[in-house]
Amino acid sequence: MSYIKPKFIHPRSPKNKLGYSRQYYEGSLSTLCAGCGHDSISAAIVDACYEMAIEPHKVAKLSGIGCSSKTPAYFLNNSHGFNSVHGRMPSVATGANLANRDLIYLGVSGDGDSASIGFGQFAHAVRRNLNMTYIVMNNGCYGLTKGQDSATADHGSISKGGIPNTFEGIDMCALAIQLGATYVAQSFSGDKTQLVPLIKAAINHKGFSFINVMSPCVTFNNNAGSTKSYDYVREHNEALSSIDFVPVKEEITLEYEGEDLVELHDGTFLKLNKLNQNWDPKDKLSIISALQIAHDKNEILTGLLYIDNDSVELNELINTTEKPLNTLTEAELCPGVDVLEKLNQSLR
């Protein structure tokens, strides 16, 4: 058999508001290992974009280098894409975002790309509150180079070679919260019911939306003793809440009463059914301590961790032009001598 996907789809495939079926949001056939968590995350991105009826040409997908960074080829084939240098996706995203704030920026990265070679880049994109969704497909190892421990591998986690990791692992979520990310969530590639609404809310959030997704590497880090295997993540997964993404307020009915509603800036909602009462998604302190407690108990907190509704994103902060640069005409770019004179006067 050749490695071919038939073009036929289910004759009763539903269509979204734009008239597209889910297939329209898919990408090429993945060349990652069979069973890779990353493929599930790609599928969750497809589900989210399809269900939100996003126009594919309004999306720019960006990535660096690594297994995770290959995935933009496997989703949203009809969107813009930029596969950048290792760890440098945040700079490219920043530049693109400043040049055109009309697009939805979807960055995909891995633990190597974001927590090692691109660690500095990552930090600055977060603190600038760049308006983008940043997904880390976190498998705790360098899958593309045969599974060495990565910077997010937990202390004591046993690799396929049988050796426990001697270093502390970086907690990407705690880091993002401390650096000023305005939307932070953690999830698991094997749990689409949680992941898809998180991605939808992240796309709708204005500002830096970070989702750290545990994404088992089936080939190099799915063994007993690993803290990033399918079995371990399932056993130690502690969801903070069950989550529903509610597109518009009108859809909120009485049955949602008693549950937490988190309003996003555009009037959409995340409906949270809180499972952990000692935590408030709007309270940084509560989540930082919750993360620390979970770390000590070997638990993986998942769900929405933190959100700041009053987020001011980078373009607003530095007052960039609202029109994409490529649509600015000569008249707007060279407003003439009078304007220049005024400007000069204002600086005297």
Binding site: K5, F8, S40, A43, S189, Y230
Partner: peptide, 15 residues
């Protein structure tokens, strides 16, 4: 089965 969802995701007819 390890419930990785790979089959569910790839299936062209979502069956």
């Amino acid at each position: 089965c390890i419930e990785c969802d790979a089959c569910r995701d790839i299936c062209p007819t979502k069956c």
